[in-house]
Design a protein around this nucleic acid. Sequence first.
DNA 1: ACCTGAACACCGTTCAAGT
DNA 2: ACCTGAACACCGTTCAAGT
Lengths: 195, 195
Amino acid sequence: MGTGTPAQRRPMRADARRNRKRLLAEAAAAFAEHGMDFSLEEIARRAGVANGTLYGHFPTRRALLEALLGDRMRALAGTGEELLADPSPFDGLTAWTREALAHATLYRGLGAALMQAVENEASELHAACQAVLAAGDALVARAREAGEVRPDVTARDVFALVTAVAWASEQSSELQGERLLAFTLDGFRAPPALP
Amino acid sequence: MGTGTPAQRRPMRADARRNRKRLLAEAAAAFAEHGMDFSLEEIARRAGVANGTLYGHFPTRRALLEALLGDRMRALAGTGEELLADPSPFDGLTAWTREALAHATLYRGLGAALMQAVENEASELHAACQAVLAAGDALVARAREAGEVRPDVTARDVFALVTAVAWASEQSSELQGERLLAFTLDGFRAPPALP
DNA sequence: ACCTGAACACCGTTCAAGT
DNA sequence: ACCTGAACACCGTTCAAGT
């Protein structure tokens, strides 16, 4: 692990390994600059390979995305587990949603891909999304038990709204995601207890 | 007004008028069923006209959308003004955001078009969006003066988050927009005054 | 004044042929 | 085992030619 290459029985041929690496590098650059709708054909062109080669390595756009983001998403899940040690459950949840927002804003259009991956079990990103959701669930549960979030808030609500905020901040250059996220988190907060 | 046809100097030729009507009907049906990414070529085909005819009537996808939604959006702005008469400023704002959410969910992918229209002055929907924002602004200002929303909340924040909730609820069939909206509105609410 | 349909450039996906 | 590049079907957009 570490480089994003998948576990496999036999090593890849040298040229295949090099092509794969180039494709990933060009895809990362193109997605970062132009968003996730960027033409796969153009990525293959920039990597100096035929379009068929790209499909050989990554049969679908989501497979390419998994190779790009898998490790990063599993790291996000790990950060969530670490934040369970935060003395304030709500602060821990807040810090984690900030990380999640930064992640979901990496490529324009990434939010939609993430939401689809959660829904679709066949998606190559589904397992990674489940790990992220599990981490969120633990943070939400802890905050709920401490009476710091409303009892009906779920990790899926948090995931959906963080992704939605990421989407909104992509649409408008003047909109700050962190500000919208702050409002949203306040909406999750439990009202002060009645005497 | 009323039918969505624009004001104009001279009446359209009969066949042009009929083609325009057919194109709008097919577009409305196709967008409602398949979302706003639906092929314009296919819409022309269903309407029984050449693709060039569609571009003659609606030079851009947004022009088509304005013809479909313009009246409805201006009505949404009107509803906002009426809700200024609601005895509770916060309830008035809440009721209006529900209408806005229903509007933004009419076609899948509509939220993105609305956000772009707000940004882009050249968009055919820009004026309609401005009217909606103005209505939202009045509602937010009234609620702020009554001390019912946080002082830093703007109409653009409300518009952005309502649209974001619409987007999120489109992504997942299990996600209820109204529930997410309820959390969001709570995040706008002013905290109880300190003694 | 409006419509037609072809033309152009582009894309995603598949697959036989190569090495 | 992997790569190539052509093939196919599709789309958005433009525009000369018609009526």
